[in-house]
Write a protein that binds this DNA or RNA. Sequence first.
RNA 1: GAAGUUGGUCAGACAAUCGCUGCGUUAACAUUAAGUUUAACGGGGAGGAAAGUCCGGGCUCCAAUGAGCAGGGUGCCAGGUAACGCCUGGGGAGCGUAAGCUCACGACAAGUGCAGCAGAGAGAAGACCGCCGAUGGCCUCAUUCGUGAGGAACAGGUAAGGCUGAAAGGGUGCGGUAAGAGCGCACCGGGCGACUAGUAAUAGUUCGUUGCAGGGUAAACUCCACCCGGAGCAAGACCAAAUAGGGUUUCAUUACUUUUAAUAGUAAACGCGUGGCUCGCGUGGAAACCGGGUAGGUUGCUUGAGCCUAUGAGCGAUUAUAGGCCUAGACGAAUGAUUGUCCACGACAAAACCCGGCUUAUCGACCAGCUUCCACC
Length: 122
Amino acid sequence: MVNYSYSRELRLLTPANFKTVFKNPLRAGSPQLTILACKNEFDHPRLGLVVPKKQVKLAVGRNKIKRVIRDNFRLSQHDLLPLDYVIIAKGGIGKLDNTQLNKLTDKLWKKIARRYKEQQQR
RNA sequence: GAAGUUGGUCAGACAAUCGCUGCGUUAACAUUAAGUUUAACGGGGAGGAAAGUCCGGGCUCCAAUGAGCAGGGUGCCAGGUAACGCCUGGGGAGCGUAAGCUCACGACAAGUGCAGCAGAGAGAAGACCGCCGAUGGCCUCAUUCGUGAGGAACAGGUAAGGCUGAAAGGGUGCGGUAAGAGCGCACCGGGCGACUAGUAAUAGUUCGUUGCAGGGUAAACUCCACCCGGAGCAAGACCAAAUAGGGUUUCAUUACUUUUAAUAGUAAACGCGUGGCUCGCGUGGAAACCGGGUAGGUUGCUUGAGCCUAUGAGCGAUUAUAGGCCUAGACGAAUGAUUGUCCACGACAAAACCCGGCUUAUCGACCAGCUUCCACC
């Protein structure tokens, strides 16, 4: 059976982890979300989330976005390339409902996978 | 039944699948500074405001003998409480037919200040229009030469009426007067002092006294009474790598003296510039122990002024006793996602050391008390 758990190994835990991703990232964007990705030393992907207070005012809203994206990541973790991902929320994300948000993240996973392959071929 | 008012309760429900988190049990693994890591099972897992951070406390560290000053806060009375700026009951004022609601409600007669425009005058006020002109003077007439009558309004008197304003220095009436005026009187109102009721704020169709004495503003300074040490869980406590660095001891090293012998003793050095002094630069070994402490980790961290029920005390806030219950504890931060069914189609909004309040936001649903109106018996 496939393991869909979301343990601590799959998260970016310290500010240092985030910094390394920010330094030299691959980008895939949309008006509502941006994904940054970067190689890591593991054979599994890791996720970090950034939802600024500026973009989503209420704590309830910020939590909801994080949870939906996190769950999406958890379920699709085996299809993703083993990279460190940082997802940044942008303006207008609060207007999306859960299904829209899921579709959008799926799209961006594919997009960033394509970019990564292009870079490797070069 | 309608409208209103007060208090309280709830905060979509159910099922399946996949997760997260900490607790308990079991198993495996590891034993390095720490029961650390992994797996399985069981039973927990946001709010009435978790919010704003506006008050009050606990807790922790720092400071401290107490008191005062400064600064800040509170402000009718009594009670409740760990405490409060909160709550309860009472008084007063205002609003409402009523149930009920609202109030920053100490002192402007301690002192100092402030008040646009208008208005004559705004605080021991003032005289523009007005009223009077008794008294003194002026003019005319009469005269028994003492004065009398009339007039004007110069001096003067006055504040009734008008005017201005949010507000004009008790009100109404009668007397009084030249005209007026608490000038006098009656009634009403006010002040002061008793008395009575009440713990008190305060009240009184009570008694006496006082012509009545100066309006507002203290969220103006101020005065009076009472209260307040500072900083905060990133508080604080503990464990503690790697690397660098601190201290102590021993050994090593170097020089000199000594000895059979690094055996013993003394000094701290050694190298280079430079042969020596001085000066400058560079180097200064090893081990053990001690202390501080960074990364990181543990703890503080949820059993508490706790909740529920019953009984007693109290108008009530609350409290006493007995019994029962354990109800989130994260740290890149859990409490979710997907699908399905149903309905009244789900508001405001998420813990971060913990409590008690206040304030603000909020789709609705339900329960109880009370008031007014209508209908029926």
